[in-house]
Amino acid sequence: MKKERYTLPAAVHLFLLRGDEILLLRRYNTGYEDGNYSVPAGHLDGGEEVKSAAIREAREETGIEIAPEDLRVVGVMHRKSLDERIDFFLAAEKWTGSIVNAEPDKCDELRWAHTGELPDNVIPYVRQAIANFQNNQWFDSFGWN
């Protein structure tokens, strides 16, 4: 009998950058970390390349379009929370369109924050990923202790 391989969810997180600032979204009415800040993010849908997923999430959450060549993968995190997962972090400094809150049922605020002065209520693993990005640290594990 063939043993099933272990699988884990994969997600993309997008660092939209404007100089020394990063776009944050405050989660609302999602059931996960509501009231805390994150970045545009979402799960890979399956059969979807990482950059394609980030482009889709940018469109769904902020209404902008990003060309694949304007995205770069800046980090990977093996994370343990209620479950175990892999998070990909991508950065973009160029896009078309104006950033809007395209999912007001899941987000109640968009704000630009200086990467060195993030609000206290940034989700901890997102805060760590931003710090890793600033320090050119490409891989990290989080939540295993």
Rank of each mutant, 00 (worst) to 15 (best):
V100N: 02
V100T: 01
A10R: 11
V76H: 01
E117I: 10
A53L: 12
F133G: 10
G19C: 05
T30H: 01
F15Y: 09
E109A: 14
K3S: 01
E84A: 13
F139Y: 10
N136R: 14
W95R: 01
E117P: 11
R72M: 08
L17V: 07
E117M: 15
L16M: 07
V76K: 11
Y125G: 05
D20P: 10
I55P: 03
H13V: 01
D34C: 06
D20G: 11
R59N: 13
R27L: 09
L17G: 01
D34F: 07
R26C: 12
T115H: 08
S52I: 06
L118Y: 11
R72E: 15
R18G: 09
I123D: 02
H13P: 04
L44W: 09
N29I: 08
K94H: 03
E48D: 07
P124D: 13
I22T: 06
K94R: 08
G42S: 10
E61I: 06
F139N: 04
K106G: 01
K2G: 08
R111S: 14
L82A: 14
D45A: 15
P68E: 09
C107W: 04
E109R: 11
W144M: 01
E109S: 07
Y28M: 05
Y6V: 04
Q128V: 08
N101S: 00
Y37D: 06
E21A: 10
E117N: 15
V50D: 07
A102V: 00
A129N: 04
L118W: 09
R79E: 02
P9F: 03
L44Y: 07
E60Y: 06
L90G: 14
K51I: 13
R27P: 02
R127M: 05
H114K: 15
P40N: 10
P9V: 03
H114A: 15
Q137T: 15
L17Y: 02
E60L: 10
G97Y: 01
G63V: 11
D83R: 12
P119G: 11
E60H: 05
F133Q: 14
K80S: 02
N135M: 12
E69D: 15
K106E: 06
G143E: 03
A92W: 10
A67C: 08
S141F: 07
Q134I: 15
D108I: 08
